[in-house]
Computed example of a mutant assay.
Amino acid sequence: MDFSEITEHSCEPGTSKNDDGVISVDVSSEVLVDSITEVPPDLIMNTDGNVENGEDPTRLTLAYERLYEIPRTIVERFSDHVWHLDISHNKITNLDPLVHFKHLTSLIADDNPITENCVLPPLPKLQLLWVNYCKIGSLYPWVAKLKESCPNLQYLCLMGNPAAPSYLNGGNFYDYLQYRLFVISQFPSLNHLDDRKVTEDQRAEAQRLYKRPFFERIVKPSSGGIAQLIHTPVKWSSFQSKITSLWGGKEERNLLI
Rank of each mutant, 00 (worst) to 15 (best):
A109H: 01
L104K: 03
L107H: 06
S106N: 12
L126I: 02
L153H: 06
C134L: 04
W130Y: 14
C118N: 15
D111H: 12
E148S: 11
L129A: 07
Y155V: 14
L129V: 09
D110K: 00
A109M: 02
W130V: 02
L146E: 09
C118E: 05
L129M: 05
V131E: 04
P122R: 11
L107N: 06
Q154T: 09
V143L: 15
W142F: 15
E148W: 09
V131W: 02
G160D: 13
C157D: 10
C134S: 05
P151K: 08
I114V: 11
Y140S: 12
W130C: 02
V131T: 08
C134H: 01
D110P: 00
P124G: 04
D110H: 01
K147M: 06
K145S: 08
V119G: 01
K125L: 14
C118K: 08
P141G: 14
E148F: 08
Y133W: 10
K125P: 03
P122G: 02
L128H: 12
M159Y: 07
C134E: 01
L104F: 12
N132G: 08
I114M: 02
L158W: 13
V131H: 01
I108S: 12
L107T: 06
K147P: 02
L139P: 00
L153F: 10
C157S: 13
L153I: 10
